[in-house]
């Protein structure tokens, strides 16, 4: 990252990809209700890299899932591309995920019976595209993560780092506006973790993605422009991890 790039991290971009206002989420747990998120207010700028940290069970993944339309907030509004996700019909949320949001998971979540290329292709199935066009895009995505020669391999034939690269290719093949990553380096050794961080940073920079990463890993968070800390559902955002 250039010095100019580092300077860019201090403030969120002027145009917001997400705007969250008073977002709350509760879960029933037995007879009790657990508040996972409490009155979250924040904006995530277009092309911003935001890292979210916090202790286990303090709402990081819940926040990420609400941003991705995988779950709905009980209170408040989540505006994405000018539309409130909390009021959007499920079919539209699904379409929005298919077109605009990519996911990366800690456990990679590759379909075990499909090859690397087919796993990547799975992200294009909901989109209107011809098989030949899909194939080109899949190969380009695999190439961008350095796995062009592993397209026919099953996930079980790949290392953890390679599986995560396939997952990244799967997330990026549809050219999303937002990439949501949940502990993307959580299952990787340090060397592989560094490779993945480098890769994410390169892709973020070259593709102009909005990147939201939930992580326990300080090394990952340090690369982000801003860091949000979730504590018992409350979010506090610092401009730069290096400020903390």
């Amino acid at each position: 990252m250039s010095a100019a790039g580092m300077a860019d991290r201090t403030e969120p971009p002027a145009t917001a990809a997400y705007t969250l206002t008073g977002v709350g989420k509760t879960y029933p747990k037995g007879r009790r209700t657990i508040a996972a998120l409490r009155g979250i207010n924040m904006a995530i700028g277009k092309g911003e890299w935001l890292a979210i940290q916090g202790r286990t069970g303090h709402g990081k993944t819940t926040l990420l899932q609400i941003l991705g339309g995988l779950d709905r907030a009980d209170a408040g509004t989540v505006t994405f591309q000018g539309r409130d996700l909390t009021q959007m019909p499920e079919a539209q949320v699904t379409r929005m995920r298919a077109q605009s949001i990519g996911f990366i998971f800690q456990t990679f979540n590759l379909v075990p019976t499909l090859s690397a290329a087919e796993n990547v292709e799975a992200a294009l199935i909901p989109l209107p595209s011809r098989p030949a066009q899909r194939h080109r895009r899949v190969m380009a995505a695999l190439d961008s993560v350095g796995l062009a020669d592993r397209g026919r391999h099953l996930p079980s034939e790949l290392s953890g780092g390679q599986q995560q690269r396939v997952a990244i290719a799967r997330a990026l093949v549809k050219e999303p506006q937002v990439l949501l990553a949940d502990e993307p380096t959580g299952n990787l050794d340090q060397a592989t973790r560094d490779e993945i961080i480098m890769l994410l940073e390169t892709l973020w920079h070259s593709l102009g993605l909005t990147l939201v990463v939930v992580t326990h890993d300080t090394a990952v968070a340090r690369r982000a422009q801003r860091v949000g800390i979730l504590t018992k559902g409350h979010l506090s955002i610092s401009k730069n991890i290096q400020d903390r």
Binding site: L70, R95, I101, V111, P112, A123, P126, L127
Partner: peptide, 11 residues
């Protein structure tokens, strides 16, 4: 697996 497919935008 199905949850992942839903996350990918599969109806």
């Amino acid at each position: 697996e199905f949850g992942t497919l839903k996350a990918l935008g599969w109806r």
